[in-house]
Design a binder for these strands. Structure first.
Lengths: 119, 119
DNA sequence: CAGTATCCTTTATGATACTG
DNA sequence: CAGTATCATAAAGGATACTG
């Protein structure tokens, strides 16, 4: 197997990077890091996500082995999403990403204003 | 100002996170971390990126204050892109993200195979 | 070289309605 | 509750041609 290298178009890491460098994925995994969360709970906590996007993103994360879906046979059904061990290996990086956004948002907005002023 | 919180739909950090949680941005900043790189050099090194996407992503990164564009009045013109100090604050996190993809690609692909087998 | 402009196709996403 | 299915629309992206 060739060395993984996201700069090559056909390298699988490129695909994974694309999946993982995703706004919703970062937000969802951030909510799961403290324990399992149910579908509608995620929906409530992530403002602005549609049911479709949440469902789709969760399915992709499950397929990639980052999230474990568990359905309990209650009536109506209860479904919990939790991080897998593999998913947990991403939490630090994703935390860093969210924190970066929170810490540097002021600088970014200031830069945007400067940029837009000139143009 | 309210506390930055990407889980709120109208929070500016959500927008920044979206910009920064981007495949092309991660790849571009990765190439810039060792020094300025020219437009077509980036194009060659990032397989599969179109001129349009490169141009667009660079413009966004410049607007956000992460990248500095410098044009030299040669004929034809020479343009260099370099990280700003703000952009440099992202390199560790982005390195981590690319490395995660490279390290865990095997596990992800295996998980995908298991998932697809059942379905 | 380093783009921009335009057209066109493909994807992504949202809204709505429905189901076990 | 936790989804899926369908339709409609907006946004993303590629190909091509052109320019200082």
């Amino acid at each position: 197997m060739t060395t993984p290298n996201p700069y090559r178009a056909k390298c699988a890491t490129r695909v994974v990077l694309d999946r993982v460098a995703d706004k919703w994925a970062v937000l969802i995994l951030g909510l799961l890091k403290d324990g399992p969360v149910r579908f509608n709970q995620l929906r409530r906590e992530i403002e602005g996500i549609s049911q479709k996007m949440l469902s789709q993103t969760l399915k992709n994360l499950e397929r990639d082995g980052l999230v474990q879906r568990t359905a309990y046979p209650t009536v109506p059904v209860t479904v919990e999403y939790a991080l897998t061990p593999l998913g947990r290996t991403l939490t630090d990086t994703f935390d860093a990403l969210r924190q970066w956004a929170e810490i540097h948002i002021g600088e970014v907005v200031a830069a945007q204003r400067r940029y837009d002023e000139v143009a």
